[in-house]
Structure formats: structure tokens, C-alpha cells
Amino acid sequence: MHALYDLAVGPLAWLAFGVFIIGSIYRLLAMRALALKKDGAFMTYISWPHAIKSLVHWFTPFGALGWKENPGVTIATFVFHICLFLVPIFLMGHIVLFDTFRGWSWPALPDGVADALAIVVVLICAYFLWRRLSVPEVRFLTTPQDVFVVSLVGLTFLTGVLAYHRIGDNLVLTTLHILCGEAMLAAIPFTRLSHMLFAVFSRGYIASEFGSVRFAKDW
């Protein structure tokens, strides 16, 4: 287990960050090249002022029709995504690893707050899974990959919470936590999680069409 832990915080961490960063850059550049090559008659309408205006609405809870009409999902989605970024980046335990091995340090969230937010993420993942399996509209669309990615995120946070509370064998849970997190990072460029990379552009494109060609709002 000790060896696996060493592997997880060492080579695998490099690999996960490498796959995530290089993979993301590659996907973005490849998609851009494809868009320029094949969607020229559409890319020409890209208008960042319109895109930004629309994105501001879509990044505001209840700022767009879809959000207003789905209040439960909206709250869950916003809280989930905010915590998804906030907790891992500003978690003391993570900062300590960077501080110890790379000498980088930045302010951390209070442990209690981070713990509470992480539990919230686990609960929201459970809610998402519940929706996937029991809300007919979502169940109709659900594929194994959808269940896999939400489970991966949920497990990453769940093992993190358990490790923080020293429930179960700490080395086993911490190692599992790190491996899940690394799998999640590496999966971002190559699964539905890639909406993290493309959402701004797909929304920005359609907002440009609506704003500059169709003179109508798209939120």
C-alpha cells in the first residue's frame, strides 16, 4: 500500500496532470482547427461581446430560462461546480503536498468549511445519481459513461471526506482518494467531462449567432 501511495503521489500525479493539461490543450487546439477547417461559415459569426454577455447570464444562477425552469437542478449544479473547483484547489491537505514537495503555497480554506463543502459535493453527486436512475427524463438519456463520471467524482470526494475524518484505514482511503482524483483529471479531456473545456465555446458560439445574426437573446 505504501508503494502504491508513493506511486499515486509521485509518477501517477505527474501523469494525471500531464494528461489533463496536455490533453486539454490538444483537444482545444484540435477542435479549433476542425472548426476553422469545417465550420468556417459559422465561425465567421463569432462575436465575443455577444458571447460574454450570454455567458454572464448563464453563469448567473437563474439568469437563463433553462435555469429558471429547473430550479432544483440549477441550485445543485451551481453549488456542485463551485465546490468542485473551490475545495480541491483551496484544501489545506492539497496545498501541504505542493508546499512540501514543490515549495508552492497559497491560502487555504478553513478545514471545517472545506469539509462541509466536500460533503455537499458527495450529497449532490448522490442526487445526480438518483436523478439518473429514477427521473424518467434523465434515465432515458443516461449511458454507462454518465454513471461512471458522476460516480468517479462522487467517489473522489467521498474517499476524501472519509480520509479527513479518519474513518477506515487512512492509508488505503487516502490512496484511493488520490487515484480517483487522478482518474478524474485524466478523464476530463476524453469524456463528457470535456464540457469543462468546451462549454464556454459552444455557448459562446451560439450566443454569437443569436446576438450578431439573429438579434435575439439566447438565455
Binding site: D39, N70, V73, R131, V135, L141, D146, R192, S194
Partner: peptide
């Protein structure tokens, strides 16, 4: 021949959230 980044992005990133039902 005719499809590019739009189709690819749409198909790949749809997270199957079901929010579009009411549209």
C-alpha cells in the same frame, strides 16, 4: 465531408442532464 466541430462538440459534451425537456 460536411460536419465539423459543432456536431462533435455537441455530441461529446451533452451531459444528459435532462434540462432541455421543458423546452
Amino acid at each position: 465531408g460536411e460536419c465539423g466541430a459543432r456536431l462533435k462538440t455537441y455530441l461529446e459534451t451533452c451531459v444528459h442532464c435532462g434540462m432541455c425537456a421543458k423546452a
